[in-house]
Design a protein around this nucleic acid. Structure first.
Lengths: 121, 121
DNA sequence: TGTGGTACAAACAAATTTGTAAGTAATGAC
DNA sequence: GTCATTACTTACAAATTTGTTTGTACCACA
């Protein structure tokens, strides 16, 4: 299972990080894609290929990995419809919905400070 | 320098990510350490070694890198006092202060959902 | 002369994250 | 019988992030 982690500082730091409420939460939505996937799914449930189109250059592998991780953390619910061709829908769970107002504020910060930065250049 | 990036998908995705207000903001506080460093500095200004003590296993290199990145993004202000031994203080900038309420909410989410998870095991 | 403290920097190495390319299964359209 | 479609999986490789170790400048103090 690739369980190669020992008691390295890397792992000790990881523990420290997930002990803290703030970084525990931050880790759930960290990485390049998770936050924006959750944000899209906050608007409506979507199929795999719909999501893929939202992110023009994402690889299928990345999308799958991120969705799996989010599913594992119970932030998205995956529903498979037995059909051909296959049809799978992703939607947010209740605990993921609680992130949405936070995303709004982050987005507002981003908008404001990106503007400020551009006006100085 | 190390400007080795081309027009790979990696870079295209990066552009896509920093175009979005939400992920632009998220990137500023992404990674293992930034968010928690900002959170600590939100309470009071601190010296390098004070910060180091807050994170028992962080390497000095990591702390330096993160502080430099935060300084570059104008989220922390670095003040050097010409003294021997050297004395450097770090504090949040106004735009970083605006993150603090968001951190509170994230932290609340973390606290709540970490509990839920533990109660199921 | 030697040690200690502060805030790093540089060279190197390990670990993780992200991306590439190809392939799969089932079925229905042509 | 070939091709297209959907939602992936697998093996591999590139890029980035994180950590280890050693070293530095400055001066005080013993």
């Amino acid at each position: 299972m690739t369980a190669r982690k020992e008691n390295s500082t890397y792992t000790l730091n990881e523990k420290f990080i997930t002990d803290c409420d703030l970084t525990y939460a931050a880790n759930k939505i960290g990485g390049r894609w998770k936050i924006i996937i959750l944000d899209k799914l906050g608007k409506r449930k979507m199929r795999f290929n719909e999501l893929k189109k939202e992110f023009p250059y994402i690889s299928e592998r990345m999308l799958t990995l991120q969705l799996r991780a989010l599913e594992h953390d119970e932030l998205v619910k995956r529903t498979v419809y037995a059909a051909v061709p296959p049809r799978v829908e992703y939607e947010l769970t209740p605990i993921a919905l609680e992130f949405l107002p936070i995303f709004c504020q982050l987005s507002a910060w981003g908008k404001k400070n990106k503007m400020l930065k551009n006006n100085r250049s």
